[in-house]
Computed example of a mutant assay.
Amino acid sequence: MKTVIKLILIYYLLQIFGSLVAAPCVMVYEFATTGTLDVTAASTEVIIPAMLLGFVFITIYLWKNGYLVDDGRIYAFTPYSQLGWGLLAGVSGICLTDALMSQLTFLPDLMKQTFDTLQSGWVGILCIALIGPVLEEFVFRRAVMKALLQKYSPAVSILISGLLFGVVHLNPAQIVSASLMGFLLAWIYWHTRSLIPCILIHVLNNSLSVYLSLNYPEVETTAELLGNSVLIGEAVLALALFLLSVKKLSVTKHTTNIEA
């Protein structure tokens, strides 16, 4: 567990370090181009470079500690049957989680302004929809799960990693959905022995969120967009597909060992 706590702390600290490095650079750039120093404007402009630098530092750490090294499974494509059922479980899980969150509108979204800023340009969108999901999968499904599985059973490891994935978001509006998706992604990783389906599902989830936010900025939930009756029908179908895909994926065979 010490290794897991260390990984989470490093994950936070490297993001903070990214902000500390980016802030003075942005201020110098703003002063050089405008001749003034607007602290409020600089605090907004620093969000994207700070996130990018944080991602760079996290990538360097993962690389130096062997988490990005190909060991024959993390980059490997799973058999088509496993990949297909895993993706179906992920997509149906996204729909079910979204339906649930449509009913939990009382949870405050403390990161709304930050996400709006990130989504104002392509670099920020790439951070949310692609770069962030890939790195989070390496941190939480690759590094954290590997550490947990060395001490705990698969069920306990999946539970802890999912909870950690939710809590580290530090945003009430995301903690529940991130935890649920964390459980599912950890379970899929355990059964497929590959990060590929987890990365694809995570990218899809974040990309869909960005798409809806940009194209329907006035809509807060999917229930508002589709209507409750359509949302209920979608949830029922998603639940049936989710149960089917989980059952099918549970009985598929895997030949590699995450703990090895």
Rank of each mutant, 00 (worst) to 15 (best):
S92C: 14
L83D: 00
Y80T: 13
V69E: 12
T105L: 09
Q103K: 15
I60D: 00
L87I: 14
G72C: 02
S120G: 13
Q103A: 14
G93C: 10
K112V: 00
T78P: 13
L118N: 10
F77Q: 14
I60H: 07
A76L: 13
L88P: 03
D98H: 00
M101C: 02
Q82I: 12
N65R: 01
G86R: 12
K64Q: 15
P79A: 10
D98Y: 01
S92I: 11
D109P: 00
Y80P: 05
S102G: 15
G93N: 02
F77C: 14
L96S: 02
T97W: 03
Q113M: 10
W63F: 15
S102D: 11
F106E: 11
F115W: 08
L68K: 04
Y75P: 13
T78Q: 14
L62F: 02
S92H: 02
T97H: 01
Q82T: 06
G86N: 08
D109I: 08
I60L: 13
T97F: 05
P79I: 11
S92Y: 10
Y67E: 01
L107C: 01
M101R: 01
M111T: 14
G86K: 11
M101W: 00
G66T: 07
F115D: 06
D109S: 04
S81R: 15
F106S: 07
R73V: 04
D109M: 05
V69S: 07
L104C: 14
L62R: 09
T117R: 09
G72Y: 05
K112E: 01
L68R: 09
L96N: 04
I60K: 06
Y61Q: 10
T117E: 12
D71L: 11
M111R: 12
L88E: 05
F106A: 14
Q119M: 08
M111C: 10
I94R: 01
V91H: 08
T78C: 14
I60A: 14
C95G: 01
S120C: 04
D116M: 07
F106P: 09
L88Y: 09
M101Q: 05
D71E: 15
R73H: 12
F77G: 13
S92A: 15
Y80D: 07
T97P: 02
L110Y: 07
G66L: 08
L107V: 05
W85A: 06
S92P: 10
S81P: 02
M101H: 05
L110K: 01
L118P: 00
G93M: 08
Q119R: 12
T97M: 05
T105E: 13
A99H: 03
L87F: 15
G93T: 06
Y75C: 13
T97A: 08
S102H: 11
G84W: 04
L118V: 10
Y61C: 00
L104S: 07
A89E: 08
L62G: 03
Q82M: 13
D109L: 07
V69L: 12
G86F: 06
Q103I: 11
L118I: 11
S120Y: 04
G72N: 09
T105V: 14
G86Y: 10
V91S: 02
Q82V: 06
Y80F: 08
C95V: 15
V69R: 15
I74E: 11
L83Q: 09
D70K: 15
